[in-house]
Design a protein around this nucleic acid. Structure first.
Lengths: 113, 113
DNA sequence: CCGCATCCCGTCCGATACTG
DNA sequence: CAGTATCGGACGGGATGCGG
């Protein structure tokens, strides 16, 4: 592993998780992949309205390098690619889900203000 | 709320959670507060060995503004401050715990490589 | 001990244009 | 449609020093 962005104590488990899912958009990408199983580059981009093409590609590549997602490219014209979670990536489900659940409750609280 | 760093779709729950817990060190801070109930500034800094004083203060302030933690200052010399989770902050427990659990498993996997 | 202000530099990231 | 290369401005975040 190259750089350790989050070394609190060596081996802090939260730190380890952050190595993988921190980074702009990563967890949101994972959230959509959890819901839809398979996503095209374009459909992801439509969901993440404020994420640039460049940024989306970068984050997808990192997730792929960490073996959280895998990519399948079809050479047809026009090109098409599919992204899906790996088995390893699916183990992140409880983490992403916990975030989604908390966020929903939080949104409801905010609305009543 | 001032800026929306993560607008995927408006109201995306994962995005809402990220508004609160994304940011360098925030979730690690919360992790320690969950374990120890009350932390002094200094003890937090000792845990987060690579977090500068400036950075720690900044993140604590943000968490305080979002009413996730609360601060108590004792005016004795030398100064002392205590941080603890608010009730609202305690609702983040499932999120942080899920991250910790995943990180532990991940660490064990890495060790066997 | 705790926390803020200032300075300053490295990186992130958006805009744009180009390729398969 | 999916992805890469390059550039330049914005911002994050470290170092340092001051003040409660």
């Amino acid at each position: 592993m190259k750089r350790q962005v989050f070394d609190c104590q060596p081996g802090c488990p939260v730190e380890s998780t952050l190595q993988i899912i921190s980074g702009k958009w990563k967890s949101v990408i994972l959230y959509h992949l959890l819901q839809e199983k398979v996503c095209h580059f374009g459909s992801l981009q439509r969901q993440l309205v404020n994420c640039s093409r460049r940024m989306l590609a970068l984050q997808l590549k990192k997730l792929e390098q960490d073996q959280i997602i895998e990519k399948i490219t079809y050479q047809d014209q026009p090109f098409k690619t599919e992204y899906r979670l790996t088995l390893q990536g699916q183990t992140l489900k409880p983490v992403i889900l916990a975030m989604a659940v908390w966020g929903e409750k939080y949104n409801r609280l905010q609305k009543n203000k």
